[in-house]
Amino acid sequence: FHVTIHVGDITFHIHGVSEEEVKKLEELVRRGADWREIKKTIEEIEK
């Protein structure tokens, strides 16, 4: 999957994300995680 996440003024683009990881990111966004937490999760996914 290709994912784009907008957190305030920050936009993250992630490529090659599995469905499971998409759900993890959706959950973070849904519970209102700040951009640092989302960035950390994205960095883990990209490894």
Score class of each variant (00 low, 15 high):
residue 2 H to K: 04
residue 23 K to F: 12
residue 34 D to R: 04
residue 21 E to G: 13
residue 44 E to I: 08
residue 21 E to W: 14
residue 41 T to G: 07
residue 16 G to S: 11
residue 32 G to K: 07
residue 7 V to P: 00
residue 28 L to D: 02
residue 17 V to K: 03
residue 8 G to I: 02
residue 44 E to F: 08
residue 32 G to S: 05
residue 18 S to E: 06
residue 39 K to A: 15
residue 23 K to S: 10
residue 4 T to W: 03
residue 18 S to V: 04
residue 32 G to M: 06
residue 21 E to F: 13
residue 27 E to S: 11
residue 12 F to Y: 14
residue 27 E to C: 03
residue 35 W to R: 06
residue 7 V to T: 05
residue 45 I to F: 12
residue 5 I to Y: 01
residue 30 R to K: 14
residue 24 K to H: 12
residue 2 H to S: 08
residue 38 I to M: 03
residue 14 I to N: 00
residue 31 R to S: 12
residue 29 V to W: 07
residue 20 E to I: 14
residue 8 G to E: 03
residue 29 V to D: 01
residue 38 I to G: 00
residue 11 T to I: 11
residue 35 W to L: 15
residue 33 A to C: 07
residue 3 V to I: 11
residue 37 E to K: 02
residue 5 I to D: 00
residue 44 E to D: 13
residue 47 K to L: 12
residue 2 H to C: 10
residue 44 E to P: 02
residue 25 L to W: 02
residue 1 F to Y: 09
residue 30 R to D: 10
residue 20 E to P: 09
residue 3 V to S: 03
residue 44 E to G: 13
residue 9 D to I: 04
residue 45 I to S: 04
residue 42 I to V: 10
residue 46 E to I: 15
residue 12 F to R: 02
residue 14 I to R: 01
residue 2 H to F: 09
residue 23 K to W: 07
residue 46 E to H: 11
residue 31 R to G: 11
residue 26 E to V: 10
residue 30 R to Y: 05
residue 24 K to P: 01
residue 26 E to F: 10
residue 45 I to L: 10
residue 27 E to K: 08
residue 47 K to S: 14
residue 36 R to P: 15
residue 34 D to P: 03
residue 11 T to R: 03
residue 40 K to Y: 06
residue 39 K to R: 10
residue 21 E to V: 14
residue 30 R to G: 06
residue 37 E to L: 02
residue 41 T to F: 15
residue 13 H to Y: 06
residue 17 V to N: 04
residue 14 I to M: 09
residue 22 V to K: 08
residue 5 I to K: 00
residue 31 R to F: 07
residue 44 E to M: 12
residue 26 E to L: 13
residue 10 I to W: 15
residue 35 W to G: 06
residue 19 E to S: 09
residue 12 F to M: 07
residue 37 E to M: 01
residue 13 H to I: 10
residue 39 K to C: 08
residue 47 K to F: 10
residue 3 V to A: 04
residue 19 E to C: 04
residue 4 T to Y: 03
residue 19 E to Q: 11
residue 13 H to A: 02
residue 11 T to H: 15
residue 46 E to Y: 11
residue 34 D to L: 01
residue 26 E to S: 09
residue 23 K to H: 12
residue 26 E to R: 08
residue 18 S to I: 05
residue 43 E to L: 13
residue 35 W to C: 09
residue 15 H to N: 05
residue 32 G to Q: 06
residue 17 V to F: 15
residue 17 V to M: 10
residue 31 R to D: 08
residue 39 K to V: 12
residue 12 F to N: 00
residue 1 F to P: 08
residue 35 W to T: 09
residue 42 I to D: 00
residue 34 D to H: 07
residue 14 I to Y: 05
residue 37 E to A: 02
residue 43 E to G: 07
residue 31 R to W: 05
residue 3 V to N: 02
residue 19 E to T: 07
residue 6 H to Q: 13
residue 13 H to W: 03
residue 20 E to V: 09
residue 24 K to D: 05
residue 13 H to C: 07
residue 33 A to F: 01
residue 5 I to C: 02
residue 41 T to I: 14
residue 40 K to H: 13
residue 31 R to L: 12
residue 42 I to S: 01
residue 43 E to H: 10
residue 45 I to E: 01
residue 40 K to P: 03
residue 22 V to Q: 06
residue 29 V to T: 06
residue 46 E to Q: 13
residue 35 W to I: 15
residue 44 E to K: 10
residue 15 H to G: 05
residue 4 T to P: 01
residue 42 I to P: 00
residue 46 E to S: 12
residue 24 K to R: 14
residue 33 A to R: 02
residue 12 F to K: 01
residue 31 R to N: 12
residue 41 T to W: 15
residue 18 S to R: 08
residue 41 T to V: 14
residue 2 H to L: 13
residue 4 T to K: 03
residue 10 I to H: 15
residue 22 V to I: 08
residue 39 K to E: 13
residue 41 T to P: 00
residue 47 K to C: 09
residue 45 I to Y: 09
residue 22 V to M: 12
residue 45 I to V: 06
residue 5 I to Q: 00
residue 2 H to Q: 09
residue 16 G to H: 13
residue 5 I to M: 04
residue 13 H to K: 02
residue 3 V to R: 03
residue 31 R to H: 11
residue 15 H to Q: 07
